[in-house]
Structures are given as structure tokens and as C-alpha cells.
């Protein structure tokens, strides 16, 4: 059963074709990698899936529902969470509040209930808090929960973004270059974390990443984008031995 299906997605900016007839199908509980050189259209693809761009052509189907023209916040509420390549945290909020805000799309108390402190809102707040604390435990930031987000180190900020995304209780998690700027120990930790998340939360993950080691290690399937077109798809083994991929991307060194 596929969670997300992209059918013939194309995206044009002015005359530039950033994505050209891309088909993708993400299965339940799989870790799916997307690789490709800079400007291949990887982040554009994420922006289309999360509703920031409306694709010029093609359709997106998530759990049987069409995502075209659905606003970004509704897509988030439907269960697609993401992190950003250039980290986008709520800098002047505490680490804890970043994660608590992440659960906005799956909580429901209105502003009146919150303002008047009605029991329904208090109960929900309690749940939000305990979920957030659990997630901070998971990404190992629990003892920094009262720090401002922008006081964290780079690697910590990347982990916080993951925790915030998980607060949305997503069925599909999009990670945009989560290993960027991490050293090799941090990368090991990250891979372990991604596997734990998938097991614990039973969700599908799409991973855009430049680090071949990370991608090859944790992804079950990989798609390769080049100039907006998908040039290959398969298991890590298949991708490593694909001629087109080697030529256009992996190069001689790989």
C-alpha cells in the first residue's frame, strides 16, 4: 500500500523546468532516499509535497487524497511533516515550545478555551507537554528544553527540527539534508535515530541527502534526480551499479 504517490509531477519557474514528469511512490514504513546533484530538484519536490508550491502539472495523492491546491497547513494537518535544508526553527522560543508548537496541527482547543483555561484545553496542554518531553528525550535534548532554540549547536538544531516535525504525529516525514554539517559521530547517531523513529512511530520517511554513506546505509530504496528528471530508482545496491547514475552523479570516485 503506497502512502504517497506522485504522478507525472512537473514544476516550472518562469521558463525553467525544475522538475520534469516525475513519478514516485512511497510505501508504508519505508525509508526512501532521494539523491542528485545540486539543483536537481530535490528540495523543489519537498516544497511541492508540503504545499509550498503548486505543481505546474501532475497530481499528488496522499492516503487516497489529492494534495494539489491544498494549503500547506492543511497538508501538515493531514500528516506530512518536514524539516528544512536551511534550518527554520522558532529562534526566540524555547526548545520545549518549539516542539509544543509542532503539535499545533494535531491539537484542537480554540483560543477561547485556552484563554479561559477550560478543562478540555488544560487536558490537551498536558498531553502536548508530555508528548513534547518524550520527543525531546528521544532526540536527546531534554536537558536543554528551556534554552532558546538559537542557542543550540548546529547538530542540536537539526535534531530539534526532527522532534518538532514528529510532534505533528506524521504518517510521512520529509527530512531535507538532515546530516548536513554533522561530523561522523553525529551522523552515526542520526542514522540510529532515523531507524528508531521509523520503528517507534511506524511512519514512512523520505530523505534528501548528499552524504552517500548515510543514504546507502539507511534507505531501502533510492531515486536519483538529475536536472529535474528521475534517472534511476532502486535498492542501494542497484543504484551503486547503475551506469546512468555513475556517469551523471556518483562519478569515478564512488
Amino acid at each position: 500500500m503506497s502512502v504517497l504517490t506522485l504522478e507525472c509531477i512537473s514544476q516550472e519557474f518562469g521558463g525553467l523546468r525544475a522538475l520534469d514528469s516525475v513519478y514516485l511512490s512511497i510505501e508504508e514504513k519505508e525509508i526512501f532516499g532521494i539523491i542528485g546533484p545540486n539543483g536537481a530538484g530535490k528540495t523543489t519536490l519537498f516544497n511541492i509535497i508540503t504545499g509550498i508550491y503548486v505543481p505546474t502539472e501532475g497530481s499528488l495523492i496522499f492516503n487516497g487524497q489529492r494534495l494539489n491546491n491544498v494549503p500547506a497547513y492543511e497538508i501538515a494537518q493531514m500528516g506530512i511533516a518536514r524539516t528544512f535544508q536551511n534550518i527554520r526553527l522558532f529562534n526566540k522560543l524555547s526548545v520545549l515550545d518549539n516542539v509544543r508548537t509542532g503539535s499545533y496541527g494535531v491539537s484542537h482547543s480554540g483560543f477561547m478555551a485556552g484563554m479561559l483555561g477550560l478543562p478540555s484545553s488544560r487536558r490537551e496542554e498536558k498531553k502536548i507537554l508530555s508528548n513534547a518531553l518524550q520527543l525531546l528525550e528521544l532526540v536527546d535534548l531534554a536537558d536543554k528544553r528551556y534554552e532558546y532554540a538559537d542557542n543550540l549547536s548546529y547538530g542540536e538544531q537539526r535534531r530539534l527540527e526532527i522532534a518538532r516535525a514528529l510532534a505533528l504525529e506524521p504518517k510521512l516525514l520529509l527530512l531535507d539534508e538532515p546530516a548536513a554539517g554533522m561530523n561522523s559521530t553525529e551522523k552515526e547517531e542520526l542514522m540510529r535515530l532515523i531507524r528508531i523513529i521509523r520503528e517507534q512511530r511506524q511512519l514512512s520517511i523520505i530523505l534528501v541527502e548528499h552524504d552517500m554513506n548515510v543514504v546507502m546505509n539507511i534507505c531501502e530504496r533510492i531515486a536519483v534526480l538529475d536536472y529535474g528528471r528521475k534517472i534511476a530508482q532502486g535498492t542501494p545496491e542497484e543504484i551503486k551499479n547503475d551506469d546512468a547514475v555513475i556517469q551523471s552523479y556518483l562519478g569515478a570516485g564512488a
Binding site: 494549503p71 500547506a72 501538515a76 522558532f90 529562534n91
Partner: peptide
């Protein structure tokens, strides 16, 4: 507060 801090990230968290 999240809207003030980062509107795109707020939307991605489900905030209208």
C-alpha cells in the same frame, strides 16, 4: 509567536 519567528515553519506545523 511561531508566526513571528518563522512563518513557513509555522505553516509546516499545521498553523493556519
Amino acid at each position: 509567536y511561531a508566526i513571528r519567528e518563522n512563518e513557513i515553519a509555522a505553516e509546516a506545523s499545521g498553523v493556519n
